[in-house]
Write a protein that binds this DNA or RNA. Structure first.
Lengths: 222, 222
DNA sequence: AACCGATGCTTTGTCGACAATACCCCGTCC
DNA sequence: GGACGGGGTATTGTCGACAAAGCATCGGTT
């Protein structure tokens, strides 16, 4: 793995991470109500820490809360996924642009070797690539931007939502080989320190993914 | 005003809004420690609501908290402002692109009349434009995108940070007339439903602002 | 004299109980 | 018969107190 780096120190931290994975992974289904008392018994902690965890989940847009009523897991829609990918296109495009100028030489060589390793796996027929490899690649680009706000919005927020969408809507999808080629082109632009090109390629890459997903959604709904 | 629309219902809401304005407005200075006990007495509420308010401020990136140590207001830097404007460029550019296709006809005409009103004020010499007019314009574009994530990240998060930077670093700045022209061009692109052009113009508009601010920072620091 | 450890104090994290609000059910009235 | 109003219940919001962790001071040792 690249970097969880999220070390829970307090009890609220642990419950927050636990709840987040449970929600993203679908253990707690979409639209499910988060009863504070029930969760406090299930996780064997006070209601206060549950409340804090829920508030953080609200900040991540993973759950919604109405005052004096309660919190429930957000229900996802195809339109929401499209909106999410629009934001990804904008943010990760900028991340790629910045990464082209801000990544260190060692980071770039690491990125290249990472891609090379994925290439080997893809050519050997492993479809392992899709999940872990893809997120790893995008993580490195985002972190390479060295832009704090960009990093936090994407890694702490959007990526978890994307994962949740994947699980909810049952996207284990292919699109491996072409995506690999796109990744390769992006890295090449970064190697040449061409931020403008890197941004364009990254935006197209995410746009393609969006179209791919939309197409899949339409075919399943028809 | 366009839309605060943030109606505090619970006590923690009110405290959160109060604290946020106090921090953004500089009443609570940068780097200041937020003592929970002290704030609970100052605002005459329990420590629990103070904690919740602080947690929300942490989510907005207005304060930082270290476990078992405490929370303090973020200290701003020129580099941070540059990073913030990079994110603005990406997000608001996308917002303009989406607004070009998603804004209703009435929203567009309202936007035009708003700009016309500002034009009158500018030509009559009022420098009132800068603050209220500019934020109003950008708000409408962002809301016109109809993209939930875009709206929340910008309006609930980044714009408050930008305001805080303005206050902290003493930016009351001019750049009125040229900015108005840029706004006008963006609106024209939206009228023509040309999302691509609207994005380009918005990105340049924000880039100009960033350069303007950077230049001002360098001149003051030298 | 400087470094290390213990002790006490301050602040945060957590807990259980109380207050307030919303929902549900039922009775009554039109 | 339907709609409005009142009471009961369950859940959330708020509070004060206890537990734990960090920080400073002070004493001891090398």
């Amino acid at each position: 793995m690249s970097l969880p780096l999220e070390t829970p120190v307090t009890s609220a931290d642990k419950t927050f991470y636990q709840l987040r994975t449970d929600i993203v992974e679908g253990v707690i289904g979409a639209g499910a109500k988060l009863s504070e008392t029930e969760l406090s018994t299930r996780y064997a902690v006070s209601r206060a820490v549950i409340r804090e965890a829920i508030n953080r989940l609200v900040a991540c847009h993973l759950v919604e809360r109405k005052a004096n009523v309660g919190a429930k897991v957000v229900t996802l829609s195809a339109a929401g996924l499209v909106q999410l990918y629009q934001v990804r296109e904008a943010l990760e495009g900028m991340a790629a642009r910045l990464a082209a100028t801000n990544m260190s030489e060692t980071e770039i060589t690491d990125l290249q070797s990472l891609l090379q390793a994925h290439s080997n796996k893809v050519s050997s027929g492993e479809s392992y690539y899709q999940e872990a490899g893809d997120v790893d690649f995008h993580y490195r680009i985002v972190l390479g931007s060295k832009n704090t706000h960009l990093i936090s919005v994407l890694i702490d927020g959007i990526y978890h939502l994307v994962r949740m969408y994947r699980v909810q809507l049952g996207m284990a999808g292919p699109r491996v080989t072409t995506a690999f080629e796109e990744h390769n082109n992006i890295v090449r632009a970064i190697v040449h320190r061409d931020g403008e090109l890197a941004e364009i390629l990254m935006r197209r890459h995410i746009l393609y993914s969006k179209n791919n997903i939309q197409q899949k959604l339409n075919s399943t709904s028809s």
